[in-house]
């Protein structure tokens, strides 16, 4: 349990707000020209930055399950993106030891025109599985998803719940050392949600490291031993899951009362 799986040291991530709209050559070229001439004629253009993660440090040990909670926009998903190297920090250091499997959003990577079967292979490859490996697990994946009947149908004809199922089924059969999960339980019926939770619990038991982002406090409580409460890109509290959650819920209630 002493081996470090994930370590953040004073990590800061900022987004350029003007970059959040579509980039246009004329804008960038205008700024470039402005610099060349030596005056800044584009004062109207926003160059504000947004600090999504502000000087954040934490450690996750091997085999631990960390829950991350907080309001919308507090930087939860950004942390997962930083861990999986989708985006890079502005400053600070991130160390990740082990193969990362990210289950960040349902349906990303599935192609609507392809059938369920084709998508299982495609998604498996995206998640870093070998073709041979997927072939071996294919029957189990289909069984777990519970959509044997529609496996040759293009998934654009699937319901959103079925989308979620096929995605999660593939994920639950991959074999990463570190698993990142972001809000996967929002879709899917009760039955499937229970299946997912069971699967996640098994992941924890088998000694895998998990970082779990969710608004579903019951699920976080059920799976995670440790939790971080994020607020405005900073850690407001970290520690044992129950304590952190009750603190967070108090805060939410408090702000509700204020607004009333």
């Amino acid at each position: 349990m002493d081996n470090i799986a994930i370590k953040f040291q004073n990590v800061t991530k900022s987004y350029l707000i003007s970059r959040m709209k579509y980039g246009r050559f004329s804008d960038d070229f205008g700024i470039f020209l402005g610099k060349l001439i030596g005056k800044n004629r584009h004062k109207t253009l926003q160059r504000e930055t947004l600090l999504a993660i502000n000087d954040l440090s934490f450690t996750v040990h091997e085999g631990e399950c960390l829950g991350i909670i907080g309001r919308n926009g507090s930087g939860k998903s950004t942390i997962l993106k930083l861990i999986s190297k989708i985006t890079y920090p502005k400053s600070g250091q991130i160390t990740v030891n082990g193969k990362v499997g990210a289950f960040i959003e349902l349906g990303a990577g599935l192609h609507p025109e392809l059938s369920g079967k084709e998508n299982i292979f495609l998604y498996g490859a995206i998640l870093g599985m070998k073709k041979q490996e997927i072939k071996g697990k294919y029957a189990d994946i289909v069984k777990f998803s519970g959509i044997e009947k529609f496996i040759d149908t293009p998934i654009k004809r699937y319901s959103s719940g079925m989308y979620a199922r096929i995605g999660f089924s593939v994920v639950s059969f991959m074999d990463p050392e570190i698993l990142l999960i972001d809000e996967v339980l929002a879709v899917g019926d009760q039955n499937f949600q229970k299946k997912c939770l069971d699967k996640m619990k098994r992941f924890v038991k088998s000694g895998k490291t998990i970082v779990f982002v969710s608004h579903n406090m019951d699920a976080v409580k059920l799976i995670c031993s440790k939790a971080i409460y994020l607020d405005g890109g900073k850690i407001k509290m970290q520690g044992e899951t129950k304590t952190v959650i009750s603190h967070y819920l108090d805060d939410v209630k408090g702000s509700k009362n204020e607004s009333q």
Binding site: H111, E113, L114, L122, A125, G128, K131
Partner: peptide, 20 residues
Amino acid sequence: KFRELLFAFTNREIKVRYKQ
């Protein structure tokens, strides 16, 4: 290292390009 994914994407592109 990611060659399997390269083939998977190629496969997708070929399949999807002429679907429907």
